Amino acid sequence: MPLDLTPLSADHFDDWLEATRARLVTLRQESGMFVGDDAVAHVDGILSELLPAGHETATSLILTIDDADTRVGTVWLAANNGVLFIVDLAFAIEPSRRQLDDLLDELRSLARRQQVGRLSVALHSSDTAGRAFVEGRGFEVASIQMLLEPLPSRAPRASGGLVVTPMTPERFTSFATASEAAFAEDLAASGRYSAEDAAIESHRQMLLELPDGVESEGQELFTAHVDDAEIGVLWIGVRRRGGRPHAFILDIEIASDQRRKGYGRDLLLAAEHEAARLGADSIGLHVFGFNTSAISLYESLGYRRVEERFLLSV
């Protein structure tokens, strides 16, 4: 018989919330995406944002998953922009393959009833149960958060001739326009946003990160040159991770006519060198799932996946 998905009752909400908070904190700490209290602060921020009215929050749906008299687990859902997001999927038992198949069927049916075209779930590297749910069921990797820690002491490759220098205010104007447009295209291509919503989101993030242009606090922007010719750009945001500086690559780009010459690897090594100069002992980045060549490059240099977002058309 099919699984039974039932809204969580109000009298069980507090227990669910306590268990979910602990689970989400642990997943972030075990994956390495967040350290110590950073994970606690991040999870508390998510819970406050997505559950402002607690159990009565209209934009969230928390369901129990039952198979006859057996409680399989719970699933927390939220819909936005034509996507049904699985915010959290927690199993009380190790589900069978049949139970996982039935769960996906139920979620697909729910998405169709809500006229939602895609399912999305973000999973940390330590979430083995969640990965068992997506594997072999048609989900595709939409985006990946990657981390390199500790920062290796490898120097930029001198033989490549690539040099990075601080970006000038004059160059920033054209960079900002191109970077915003390219990020919007990638957001749309990832399947998470429509073209219109991707443009809005890209513009929002650009204003958030670079309110004062090239002089924005905590932002380091560079142009990359070989033999005095510009061949790429690099943008590093300086964050805090476990109380220490953490570098995050917000944009790294090699000009289209300069690719497949090894400059991408050289620029990534230069980014690590700049991160060390800024006092960071770790570096992270985000990459879209369709960018397989970049993913291969990052993994060849030791970057590991700490979180992946999966999408499935329903």
Rank of each mutant, 00 (worst) to 15 (best):
P2E: 10
L3S: 03
L8R: 04
L8D: 05
A10S: 12
D11P: 11
F13I: 01
W16F: 14
W16P: 08
T20E: 14
V25H: 03
Q29E: 12
S31V: 02
S31E: 09
D37R: 05
D37Q: 15
A39M: 07
D44M: 04
T64E: 15
D67G: 08
D69M: 03
N81V: 04
I86K: 01
I93H: 02
R97L: 10
R98F: 02
A111G: 09
Q114H: 10
S120T: 03
A132T: 07
A142I: 02
S143L: 11
Q145L: 09
M146T: 15
P152R: 00
A158H: 12
L162K: 07
M167E: 04
E170S: 07
R171Q: 14
S179W: 11
D186E: 15
A189P: 04
S190V: 02
E201N: 06
H203E: 14
R204K: 11
R204A: 15
Q219R: 13
A224V: 10
D228H: 05
I231A: 02
L234Y: 00
V238D: 02
F248V: 13
D251T: 12
D251C: 01
I252Q: 13
I252P: 02
S256T: 11
K261F: 09
L267Q: 01
H273E: 13
S282D: 13
I295Y: 01
Y298Q: 03
L312P: 06
S313V: 07
V314T: 15
